[in-house]
Amino acid sequence: MNMLIVSGSPHIHGDTSVKKIMYGVVYAMIPAMLVSVYFFGLGALRVLAISILACLLFEWVIQKYLIKGPLTINDGSALVTGVLLAFNVPSNLPIWILIIGAFVSIGIGKMSFGGLGKNPFNPALVGRVFLLISFPVQMTSWPVPKLLFGCQALTDAITGPTPLGILKGGLKMGKTVQELMTEMPSYVQELLGNQGGSLGEVSAIALIIGAIYMFVRKIITWEVPVAYFGSVVVFTGILWLIDPMLYVNPAFHLVTGGLMLGVFYMATDMVSTPLSSKGMLIFGLGCGILTVVIRVWGAYPEGVSFAILIMNAFAPLINMGFKPKRFGEKVIEA
């Protein structure tokens, strides 16, 4: 007989693992990837491939030569970061900028804190915001969607603003919302993804399909999305009721920009969000309010990534302040 093994209970383990969760997220992003390739052509493919490869490479190099720990490249987290980074940039972004973004994401956003699980901020968002601030021109000249088979995609001759950009610019010039709406794609077009924007954020439908998959696989929970969407709808709804000439309706806010992407794929990132249900609700609420504040009154047309990063910074505080309800905490009157 073999030597008996002794360990503490429990002696069985569930079938969840970090790897399964991370690859689950990647599978969930496949529809959005396909849509982006469909609308932005080979440029999207190029950005995806380079972002993923660069992220994996940086992870491997840093883990092997700087941290000198066991290789973590298989756990899928670098892959997720790579795809998310690609989703957050326009399809005509120069390669060198993308590689810098990957370095900032993995190297500074994640590995400098000690690798997966230690990073206070969502790595892909760190990279995205770094690029947005450093290379504002390249990061905000979005190619107009061009169907794959009408192919002009590689040259990217035509660039245009996102719906949110149109809105912000138009309002500054004193136009009303009603006038501006005529310049935009219809809601159906926006849902499908036929709008200007970063790779992954254009198609709400594809993102929702992925999100449903993640819900079914229990990779994400309901708290953050519900609180995030809820607060965005309520907040923008109030503004819209006050003055529909100045403020756009909530439905527009939901389907445009990076909201869907941010809510389902980045605000639900486990590492940088609070732990308990209550904490997640607060987190989602904060994200929603900040997003609307930045969109409506801020300098940038889009606020999802800033909102999530700011709330990431609050996550430890939220963890301390919002504990789960303990069993038997409430004193029962006899």
Binding site: M3, L4, I5, V6, S7
Partner: peptide
Amino acid sequence: SQKISYDG
């Protein structure tokens, strides 16, 4: 000699 192995 070792008789049991500990895992923890």
